[in-house]
């Protein structure tokens, strides 16, 4: 398990290559990269605040839960904080497993939980000077509920 919480940018391609190297037992690697998306009328930056003494611990618990549910050979989570420009990578997850269904499901699970249970808060700073905190969506909570309903039927 490799968990990183950092202000610095990362190279998603290089990270994926490193993650995938030497995984002879894994037939499947799935990765997701989240990118700062521009929004109307023009995003200057996304500011990501976090809870330093809790963040890595919370992510480790989420990744640990994924390892309990699926047979994963490795898990990577990188999540940034601070001021990020449109187009910049915010975070990535990667999962390695023997078969693709577990790798896909675990990556999906990690994304749902990182969105609503890891202590990060996004603020959109617009070019016109306005700034607003991004609201959590009801659909984010719904996304979590589906994991308690289906458990680990697709390992």
């Amino acid at each position: 398990m490799d968990i990183r919480v950092q202000a610095e940018p990362f190279d998603a391609g290089a990270e994926l290559n490193t993650f995938s190297a030497g995984l002879q037992d894994s037939g499947a690697v799935v990765s997701f990269t989240g990118i700062v998306r521009d929004v109307a009328p023009g995003l200057k930056a996304m500011e990501i605040e976090h809870y330093p003494s809790m963040t890595a611990k919370a992510i480790k618990a989420i990744a640990g839960e994924a390892q309990t549910r699926w047979a994963l050979n490795n898990v990577l989570v990188i999540h940034r904080y601070g001021l990020l420009a449109p187009g910049a990578p915010i975070m990535m997850v990667a999962t390695a497993s023997s078969h693709r269904s577990a790798a896909f499901a675990a990556a999906d699970f990690l994304m749902d939980y990182l969105k609503s249970r890891a202590p990060f808060w996004k603020k959109e700073i617009m070019r016109d000077g306005q700034s607003t905190w991004v609201d959590a969506k009801a659909t984010d909570e719904d996304a979590l509920n589906r994991w308690s309903a289906t458990s680990d039927s697709d390992t």
Binding site: G34, Y51, K115, S116, A118, F120
Partner: peptide, 12 residues
């Protein structure tokens, strides 16, 4: 020792 208050999280 430490209590934290915050809005619903918006990571990912």
């Amino acid at each position: 020792r430490e209590i934290a208050f915050f809005p619903p999280m918006t990571g990912g």
